[in-house]
C-alpha cells in the first residue's frame, strides 16, 4: 500500500518576485521605451496568460489553438482576437513590437522573425504546479503588467489554499490517454492528482515524466480510478485503447474523463481540473 503523499507546498512568493525583477532588469533596454504596445503570442499557454494579463488593445493576435474549445479553456475570450498559425510571414505582417514565444517554438521560426527585426521573447512554460506563479510573473513583467500579475498570483494562491485537504487514504488512479500514454512523477498532471487526493499508479510503475504504460501493467496495478483523456472527433486506433474491454472492466470500479484543455497549460485554470478530479475521486469512493 503506497503512503499517502503530503500536502503540496509551493515555492515561496519571494522567488517569483525575484524572477520578475530579473526579467525586468534584463528587459531594461526594451522597457526604457515603455511596455510593448503590439504583442503577438505564438503558443496556446502564453496566449492564455497574455489574455489574462494584457492591457486592452495590447495583445494583437493569439494562436488558433486558443480559440479551439477542445484545447483551450479560454476559447470564448479568444474569439475576440485575430488568430495566427505561427507562420513567420503572418506574424511579420501583424507588425508586433514583441513576439511572445516559448523555448519550444521551432528554432527556424524564431530566427527568421529575429532576422526580420522583431523582438522575440522565448518563455519557458510551467511544467509543474510550482512553476505557475513564476510563469505569471514573467509574462506580467514582459507586458509591463506587474500589478495584474501579482493580483493573479495572489488569486491562484488563495485558490490553492482554499482546496479541501487531501484525504488520509488517497485513491489510486491512473491517467489513461491515447496510445496508453500516461503522466508519471514530476509532471503537472501528477501534481494535480496529488492536490485532488489521488495517488498516481504510474509512479508505482516507476514512470518519470510522460511515458507509456502497457495495458497489461495497468490492469495488474489495479487502480481504483481510471481517468481518461477526452475524445477527438473522427476515429483512431490510438484512442481505441481507451475502449478496450480490459480497460472497460477497470473503469467499472471507477472512471471518468478530463478534457485536455483543463490542464494542458500551467495557468490558474488548473484549479478547475483539481476540482473535477476531486469530484471523480468522491464519486469513485462512494461507488467502492
Amino acid at each position: 500500500m503506497p503512503r499517502p503523499a503530503g500536502p503540496f507546498t509551493l515555492a515561496s512568493p519571494r522567488a517569483s518576485s525575484l524572477v520578475a525583477l530579473a526579467v525586468a532588469l534584463l528587459g531594461a533596454t526594451a522597457a526604457a521605451a515603455g511596455p510593448p504596445q503590439r504583442v503577438v503570442s505564438l503558443n496556446l499557454c502564453t496566449d492564455q496568460l497574455a489574455m489574462m494579463l494584457s492591457a486592452p488593445g495590447q495583445l494583437v493576435s493569439i494562436t488558433h489553438l486558443a480559440a479551439d474549445p477542445m484545447m483551450s479553456v479560454m476559447a470564448d475570450q479568444a474569439a475576440g482576437f485575430p488568430l495566427n498559425h505561427g507562420r513567420a510571414e503572418e506574424i511579420h505582417a501583424l507588425d508586433p513590437d514583441m513576439v511572445l514565444a516559448t523555448i519550444w517554438t521551432p528554432r527556424h521560426t524564431v530566427s527568421l522573425l529575429e532576422r526580420l527585426g522583431l523582438r522575440v521573447e522565448q518563455m519557458p512554460l510551467a511544467m509543474r504546479l510550482e512553476d505557475i506563479p513564476d510563469n505569471i510573473a514573467q509574462i506580467g513583467a514582459l507586458l509591463g503588467r506587474e500589478a495584474q500579475a501579482q493580483a493573479l498570483i495572489a488569486d491562484f494562491r488563495a485558490g490553492l489554499a482554499a482546496l479541501a485537504p487531501p484525504p488520509e487514504m488517497p485513491l489510486r488512479a491512473v491517467l489513461h490517454n491515447a496510445n496508453n500514454y500516461t503522466s508519471g512523477s514530476g509532471t503537472m498532471a501528477a501534481d494535480l492528482l496529488v492536490l485532488a487526493g489521488l495517488a498516481n499508479v504510474a509512479r508505482e510503475a516507476g514512470i518519470t515524466g510522460g511515458g507509456t504504460l502497457p495495458m497489461e501493467q495497468i490492469v495488474m496495478l489495479a487502480p481504483d480510478l481510471v481517468i481518461q483523456a477526452q475524445r477527438y472527433p473522427g476515429a483512431s486506433r490510438a484512442e481505441a485503447v481507451m475502449d478496450h474491454p480490459a480497460m472497460l472492466a477497470l473503469r467499472d470500479r471507477g472512471g471518468g474523463a478530463l478534457a485536455d484543455a483543463e490542464w494542458v497549460c500551467g495557468t490558474p485554470h488548473v484549479l478547475r481540473a483539481v476540482a473535477r478530479l476531486a469530484a471523480l475521486r468522491d464519486a469513485a469512493t462512494e461507488g467502492n
Binding site: 496510445n179 496508453n180 495495458m215
Partner: peptide, 25 residues
Amino acid sequence: LSPNPFAAAEIVFWMMGSLADRSMT
C-alpha cells in the same frame, strides 16, 4: 483528412500492421 489528431500517425499501422492492444471484440 481526419479531424482526429492521432489518425495521421497511424498511416504506418495500416501499412505495416500490428496486433498490440487488440481485444476479443
